[in-house]
């Protein structure tokens, strides 16, 4: 495990230019909690979550909108938080990995990926978890999917295709999605 003193307390840095023209108030519901801070309009949603709210589960892999590591849910939809300004999320509901489940009480997606040993270095992981969560939720609501049919590999791979992982070759993540689906189905059936 990493040394304990690396768990440094979080200190948000204030924007140096406080002129009213260049600051905006962002208020949004993040993981169920109402949050409000004043930031520069240029602050991305990802930076707002990480730097202003200290929610560092969301990772930045490219800030070019490609890798998907920063994927969060905005009003339930997966979006790239590096491609959204914080101010665009005003009055919206944002969900990050911190809002899924805890070590003691994992969300089925987290549990599925734990069981399947889906990840290696863990850097892309938060984006995948949010993309998978949204995928399984949407799939569960879609009438086109007959009840009880497990997602196929092809279907899962398509759903994961907007998230890049450099470690795994994806197969273990596909397995994790299927396992998460099983856990969800079992608990729904119970």
């Amino acid at each position: 495990m990493p040394p304990a003193e690396l768990q440094t307390p979080h200190t948000p840095h204030t924007p140096p230019d406080e002129s009213p023209d260049l600051t905006v108030t962002v208020n949004a519901t993040v993981n169920g909690t109402r949050r409000s801070t004043t930031v520069e309009p240029r602050r991305t949603l990802a930076d707002w979550l990480r730097d202003d709210l200290g929610l560092t589960a969301t990772h930045l892999g490219c800030e070019q909108g490609v890798c998907g590591a920063c994927t969060v849910l905005v009003d339930g939809d997966p979006v790239r938080s590096c491609l959204m300004l914080a101010v665009q999320a005003r009055e919206m509901a944002v969900t990050t990995v911190e809002g899924l489940g805890s070590v003691a009480d994992m969300h089925p997606v987290q549990q599925g990926c734990l069981d399947a040993m889906s990840f290696q270095c863990g850097f892309c992981t938060p984006g995948f978890l949010m993309a998978i969560t949204a995928y399984l939720a949407r799939r569960g609501q879609t009438a086109e999917v007959p009840d009880g049919r497990a997602p196929s590999d092809d279907e899962i791979r398509e759903a994961l295709s907007g998230n890049l992982c450099r470690c795994t070759g994806y197969q273990s993540i596909v397995d994790g999605v299927r396992r998460a689906w099983e856990i969800t189905s079992e608990s729904a059936g119970a």
């Binding site: 690396l6 979080h10 560092t56 990772h59 990050t96 805890s102 990840f119 863990g122 978890l129």
Partner: peptide
Amino acid sequence: LTGGGNYIDDRN
């Protein structure tokens, strides 16, 4: 899996 990783950019 719970966002508890401690990567370099997570430290401030």
